[in-house]
Amino acid sequence: MDTRKTLVAAALKILEQEGDAQFSTRAVCAIAHVTAPTLYHHFGSADGLLSAAVEEAFKQFLETKRIAKQSSDPAIALRQGWDNYVRFAAGRPRLYAAMIGRVLLGATIPAAEQARALHVENIKAIAAEGRLAMPAEAAADLAWASAHSAALLYVTGQGRTPDRAVIDGLRDHAMDAIFKS
């Protein structure tokens, strides 16, 4: 593995284990077995490394969406995508929090934009079939917001796993509102 990839992998490890509040270049360098000048040579700053690590995390998330076996029925695929999103956040809550934090700060992250585009494309396929109970943009926002809400329950739960009925309820209520009866 080249030095740049090693540094990103070390940064991801810290983000997953400790979160971005505990992120430090010193810890990254120790894990990667490099000196600080090497890190700065490749990324310019701690923020540059953090941005690269978050971009890699979004690429990993996008890859989970691409390889997940999804139904050819776009309505079922929407539910599967929702579950995949929440599963990613549940499995990697500190990393997910760092990823969303960067988005909230206004970062442009191509893999995040690609994931959103796949989501919107799926909603448009459902709209083309005449199965939406609301405009496609509103349906996309509702599905996205409900998945974020469920994901945040894992981030803010402080080690407590959210009640599965709450997670399923968020998804099911959103889907009931999105689809025509």
Results as ranks from 00 to 15, higher is better:
residue 2 D to A: 14
residue 4 R to W: 10
residue 5 K to L: 12
residue 6 T to L: 15
residue 6 T to A: 15
residue 9 A to I: 03
residue 16 E to V: 03
residue 19 G to I: 04
residue 21 A to T: 11
residue 24 S to L: 02
residue 25 T to F: 07
residue 27 A to K: 08
residue 29 C to I: 03
residue 31 I to M: 01
residue 35 T to K: 14
residue 35 T to I: 07
residue 36 A to K: 15
residue 41 H to R: 15
residue 42 H to W: 10
residue 43 F to T: 00
residue 45 S to I: 01
residue 46 A to I: 04
residue 48 G to Y: 05
residue 50 L to Q: 07
residue 54 V to H: 02
residue 55 E to S: 13
residue 61 F to L: 09
residue 63 E to K: 15
residue 64 T to K: 08
residue 65 K to C: 11
residue 69 K to W: 11
residue 78 L to N: 09
residue 81 G to R: 15
residue 83 D to G: 09
residue 84 N to Y: 05
residue 87 R to F: 09
residue 92 R to K: 13
residue 92 R to L: 10
residue 94 R to Q: 14
residue 94 R to F: 09
residue 94 R to N: 14
residue 100 I to M: 13
residue 105 L to Q: 15
residue 110 P to D: 04
residue 110 P to N: 04
residue 110 P to C: 06
residue 111 A to R: 02
residue 112 A to S: 09
residue 112 A to H: 15
residue 114 Q to A: 14
residue 115 A to V: 06
residue 116 R to E: 08
residue 119 H to N: 07
residue 121 E to V: 07
residue 127 A to M: 04
residue 127 A to R: 03
residue 130 G to L: 07
residue 131 R to Y: 03
residue 136 A to Q: 00
residue 137 E to A: 14
residue 138 A to F: 10
residue 139 A to H: 07
residue 140 A to E: 03
residue 141 D to K: 12
residue 141 D to W: 12
residue 141 D to E: 13
residue 142 L to H: 01
residue 142 L to S: 02
residue 144 W to R: 14
residue 146 S to P: 00
residue 147 A to T: 05
residue 148 H to P: 05
residue 152 L to W: 15
residue 154 Y to F: 12
residue 155 V to K: 08
residue 159 G to D: 02
residue 160 R to D: 02
residue 161 T to L: 08
residue 163 D to P: 00
residue 164 R to K: 13
residue 166 V to R: 08
residue 166 V to Y: 11
residue 170 L to W: 05
residue 171 R to P: 00
residue 172 D to C: 04
residue 173 H to S: 11
residue 175 M to P: 09
residue 176 D to C: 09
residue 177 A to R: 14
residue 177 A to I: 06
residue 178 I to N: 07
residue 178 I to S: 07
